[in-house]
């Protein structure tokens, strides 16, 4: 069970860290300063979640791996984030639609996780639920503003949604790790909140005058099957740490 639990924790940590890494690439490139503050805020919260998850994974694993060992010294193919969060930033529409799709899932996830029998995860969930509620509020505002803004913003938002919708089914997948943690009431089966998720996103798309796509679904993140560009993302993230093995920072 321990192996499966560690894998589960790493999976959630990877999701948060990869998304955080993507968002922080926007720093100094955002369309206004107020939004620079907002993007940094979301990225910071996600790093915090990743750190707690990685630290707990390392502790559970019991071989002395720290949060940094897990973030900087695993190869790209060991990362289990869903493909959704590694989709390229693209324009602001792509980034915010990605954020919205992620946050609408994560808000439900963390809310449900506050009931986890695992104290560490329940405590993290308490914090993360509040953080994610705010991220969702922010992303939802933007999806609506862009969808129901100008002709140009509408097109960009629809293009983004058309591309990203194909990565959402994977958010509800389960494998032996999920099954194991769910059986012990430590984790949650995301299919439990799938109807609520669908209703929620549909309502926002309607308000945004966007149409919900029909798309071929892609998966592979949890098996370490990432898309082009992911290796470079991880390599850049790990580059300084790996240039000085064993160093403290």
């Amino acid at each position: 069970m321990s192996d499966l639990f560690v894998r589960y924790l790493l999976r959630q940590g990877d999701r948060a860290l990869v998304l955080s890494q993507q968002l922080s690439a926007w720093v100094t490139h955002v369309h206004d300063l107020e939004e620079e503050m907002a993007v940094a805020n979301i990225s910071l919260d996600l790093i915090g979640q990743a750190r707690t998850l990685y630290a707990y994974a390392g502790e559970t694993e019991g071989s002395g791996r720290t949060e940094d060992d897990l973030a900087y010294w695993r190869p790209a193919e060991d990362f289990q984030n869903p493909l959704l969060v590694e989709q390229p930033n693209g324009d602001f529409a792509m980034t915010m639609v990605r954020q919205f799709l992620h946050d609408s899932w994560a808000a439900l996830y963390w809310q449900a996780m506050t009931e986890s029998v695992d104290d560490t995860l329940a405590a993290l969930a308490g914090k993360a639920a509040k953080e994610t509620a705010y991220h969702l509020r922010h992303a939802k505002s933007w999806v609506i503003r862009m969808g129901d803004g100008t002709e140009e913003s509408h097109q960009r938002a629809q293009t983004a949604l058309d591309h990203l919708w194909g990565y959402t089914d994977a958010l509800f997948d389960s494998d032996d790790a999920e099954i194991a943690v769910v059986a012990k009431n430590i984790g949650i089966d995301p299919t439990n909140f799938r109807p609520a998720w669908l209703t929620g996103v549909a309502a926002v798309f309607a308000e945004a005058t966007l149409h919900q796509p029909v798309a071929a679904q892609r998966r592979g993140g949890r098996d370490g099957l990432h898309q082009p560009g992911f290796d470079q993302l991880i390599e850049e993230m790990q580059s300084v740490a790996r240039a000085h093995p064993g160093a403290q920072w």
Binding site: E34, M37, A38, N41, Y134, R137, H138, S141
Partner: peptide, 11 residues
């Protein structure tokens, strides 16, 4: 107002 509120919260 909503945008202003969020901007104020973040700043």
């Amino acid at each position: 107002g909503e945008q202003a509120l969020q901007a104020a919260r973040d700043l």
